[in-house]
């Protein structure tokens, strides 16, 4: 029983960055912007949050800075994708490369090392996993409601399915997408902050560990719908929690190599994605220029 409670707690904890990344990504994807840049946005906000706290010792300032950084990153990704009329995947990959190069460069200039920010004190971090989890659920609920009941949601879906329907009404679909991408970055930013200020004690290199991509898989698995996407995140979080539990364990006195344990979440994601039942389709105009 205790083990079960510990496991559920662990699932909730690891699901937080996934949930925020997936909900952010959902906003961007529904606007027609294919988003493989979630990974970079998670890293960016995680780093900026940790770096801010390292300089100010205030977790709340770090939270704000992380979210703003995520938003800025989203705006850059959205603007570049829309204006270049290029393949969003190419821009997304380039964005991830940019962040992967930018963070250690800045890190060295500010902290003298490229590996990450200094360790943060416990009282300069967030300790409540549960409030992050509840916030994520709340964001999901708001998103679910806003998609069907607001002007914003209506235009977002139009930009993703048939941007020309907006253009002929004199509404710029490109602008809708840039706004969506910015909002996406803000939401993903909370997930990034959770990584470096709650789950970790500062920023360490590549700390998102592919969660941005797993979140994207969750969106696809959830058929681009908020509730299902949230459930998919929890499912993937289970695989991650299993991985954490198995680390360093052995079966019948035979040590399980860590390399194999570590790939569990990725294999699980790949298999779940491959054998999903419903093949809900993507927004029709996804990754098409406007």
């Amino acid at each position: 029983m205790e083990l079960l409670i510990a496991f559920v707690e662990s699932v909730m904890r690891v699901s937080v960055p996934l949930l925020f990344a997936a909900y952010g990504g959902l906003i961007s994807e529904r606007s027609g912007l294919a988003n493989v840049a979630l990974e970079g946005q998670l890293l960016l906000s995680a780093f900026v949050a940790a770096a801010t706290v390292a300089l100010t010792q205030n977790a709340w300032v770090g939270l704000g800075a992380g979210i703003v950084a995520g938003g800025l990153g989203g705006a850059v990704f959205g603007w570049t994708s829309v204006k270049s009329r290029a393949d969003h995947i190419v821009i997304g990959i380039a964005f991830n490369m940019l962040i992967a190069g930018l963070i250690p460069t800045v890190c060295r200039a500010w902290f003298g090392v490229t590996g990450g920010t200094p360790q943060l004190q416990r009282d300069a971090r967030f300790t409540s996993d549960i409030s992050f989890f509840l916030a994520a659920v709340l964001v999901g609920g708001i998103l679910w409601w806003a998609l069907q009941s607001t002007r914003w949601g209506l235009r977002l879906k139009a930009a993703g399915d048939r941007p020309e329907a907006l253009t002929v009404q004199g509404v710029s679909a490109g602008w809708v997408r840039i706004q969506a991408s910015t909002l996406c970055g803000l939401v993903v930013g909370i997930g990034g902050v959770n990584l470096s200020l709650c789950q970790g004690s500062g920023y360490i290199r590549e700390m998102a560990g592919g969660r941005g991509f797993i979140a994207l898989a969750a969106i696809i698995f959830g058929g681009w719908r908020p509730v299902q996407t949230g459930l998919a995140c929890l499912l993937f979080a289970v695989a991650d929690a299993v991985q954490t539990m198995l680390q360093g364990k052995s079966i019948f006195d035979l040590a399980i190599p860590n390399s194999i344990v570590q790939i569990i979440p990725y294999v699980a994601t790949l298999l779940l994605l491959a054998f999903r039942r419903s093949m809900m389709s993507a927004p029709s105009a996804i990754n098409k220029p406007v």
Binding site: S84, A86, I91, A94, F95, L98, A100, G101, P104
Partner: peptide, 24 residues
């Protein structure tokens, strides 16, 4: 003193973005 090898990644990423926008 302040710059690391990771600057190469920044350069590569920016080049990719600019090349992607080439048709426009």
């Amino acid at each position: 003193d302040k710059i690391s090898r990771d600057l190469a990644g920044v350069i590569q990423a920016l080049i990719v973005m600019a090349v992607a926008a080439r048709p426009v």
